[in-house]
Design a protein around this nucleic acid. Sequence first.
DNA 1: CACACTTCAGGGAGCGCTCCCGCAAAACGC
DNA 2: GCGTTTTGCGGGAGCGCTCCCTGAAGTGTG
Lengths: 331, 331
Amino acid sequence: MRRPTLEAVATRAGVSKSTVSRVVNGEPTVASDIRDLVMRAVNELGYVPNPAARSLVTRRTDSIAVIVSDPPAGLVSDDPMFSTVVRAASREFEAAGKQVVLMLAGSDDARLRARQFVAARHVDAVMLVSMHGADPLPAALATTGVPLVSHGRPVFQVAAPWVDNDNVGGAAQAVRHLLERGRRRIATICGPLDMSAAQDRLGAYREVLSETGRRSIVAIGDFTRISGAEAMAQLLEDDPALDAVFAANDLMAIGAMRALRRAGRRVPDDVAVVGFDDIEAALYTDPPLTTVRSPMGEQAAASARLLLGLLRGEDAAPVILPTRLVIRESS
Amino acid sequence: MRRPTLEAVATRAGVSKSTVSRVVNGEPTVASDIRDLVMRAVNELGYVPNPAARSLVTRRTDSIAVIVSDPPAGLVSDDPMFSTVVRAASREFEAAGKQVVLMLAGSDDARLRARQFVAARHVDAVMLVSMHGADPLPAALATTGVPLVSHGRPVFQVAAPWVDNDNVGGAAQAVRHLLERGRRRIATICGPLDMSAAQDRLGAYREVLSETGRRSIVAIGDFTRISGAEAMAQLLEDDPALDAVFAANDLMAIGAMRALRRAGRRVPDDVAVVGFDDIEAALYTDPPLTTVRSPMGEQAAASARLLLGLLRGEDAAPVILPTRLVIRESS
DNA sequence: CACACTTCAGGGAGCGCTCCCGCAAAACGC
DNA sequence: GCGTTTTGCGGGAGCGCTCCCTGAAGTGTG
């Protein structure tokens, strides 16, 4: 028993295939009595159009790939950014009637597959999330000619618009805030330096400190809690007298707070801590975390809308969303 | 300029369409010299098969829907479960050469769309994640005849296998542990009662307490941090003398710890706290959270493998994965 | 009332692929 | 040696849909 086709509906309604097609696609040039006739046949037969046949001729798939360029394994399996970004983008795409095809491009193999997939025009457009600097994927995708947008500014310039948040402004605010609180030896835990967000946040930190004639104290993390804890331990060893730390994201700030606790330092009395992102967990640390709110969800939604615009033939310029400091009790 | 077709490759290689098709699909019945000839033509032209044309005739799409039946809006936007589950399932499906189509079925409208989508055979199979009891989707999907597997036991029996973890055993361990620690007034913060995991965990809590002749003290949350905090506040009001709380997941346990802190109770001295899931954040609370480790990632991977097996024609029975208590400092 | 023009339905080609069938040539058995 | 099986390739129908083109009514004008 096979699914009913357009032709079956046409036969049952006593009209032609063309007419059924018109009704199903909502074209207005069909008399309303005939439309009703067709709709009844559609419902009676439980007809659902075959998307493969449709996209074979229309050359559209009405689906969009969201490619998350990820570290290989469960390194950041519970990354709140993944959840927030994927959800927000999905909502936006689904509202526009587009299907979301999720691809994790962690390994080289997966990246190759992703590239092939896009080249096969399995999707109409691509949204790229969080790629590292050395990632060859943006360039590879650009050559396919498929509309492309990047969530976050790519490290290497690529012919695709992007949406980012104001990493520089946010980080600068955070560091200035620590200075205003009278902190003198302000360290930072930065993210992986092949990511533009990490670069920008570190750059702003350095800039503000050098403006006021202070030296930078830097440890490198990878945006995970554990790396924040390790980096903090390293910093305490390097400079036991530090009295503040700016972590380039909240997860690392959370890790840093644990390391500080273990080292017997009080937050904020001995060491002030400021994070970045304002994930929900930042409200639940002890003490609650001062952080820079970056609108991750809106950023993803904006990326999605930019891509949808591109698909409608509009042209698109990069967007930078504002960030702002949220002062809580850790600083 | 249009993409090259099978026919173009055939012409260039001087063979028939059939032969090119055979080579592209890796059939062994092609002489190796001809195979090389074809492959050269494929590479020279940059040929990539058109998936729509292919699935029109094969009636396969090689893609699988992961449908996350979600609360409407950003309620749990950074839910670590979403990230872990979606990632693990994706990895598994991608390794099997299947594409993952992600659908958020939060609203009734979205559920309808999802049902239509599956009915249109846009995907070969469906993995359903975390639906609530009243969710009509499982039943609706079952009628489409598409292979279906559920991540987590559905509340209403449905003709689809599922993979769950041992919620009953885990919760019982947690409560017994609190009893062994000498706690006498043990409360619980349970999850939404239309979810089987929440039901099972609450049921086990009640069972163990009644076995030892104690009464239950229950507050209801919805698996979010904020609901955990609110429920904890409620519990303290209801029974100020309570000396332990078992939260049905870690996020609520984290919220509960904040509420306890605000109420001036020390953990674990005044009130012991045990969570469930063992998400990464449980390691970073102060004090680190005692919790029941549920293998969320493995559960998702197992669901995915079950579905892939179904697709190969194997039959599948429900699976329950073991859980175990991880004792840290909050109890 | 003849004419042009608009409106609306049907006919049919063709999208790019797979897979069944047929056929030639090679391999085998006695 | 001839009949039979096996191997390897080509031909071509057909998957279910869209969309261009055609043509038959219906509408308006002088």
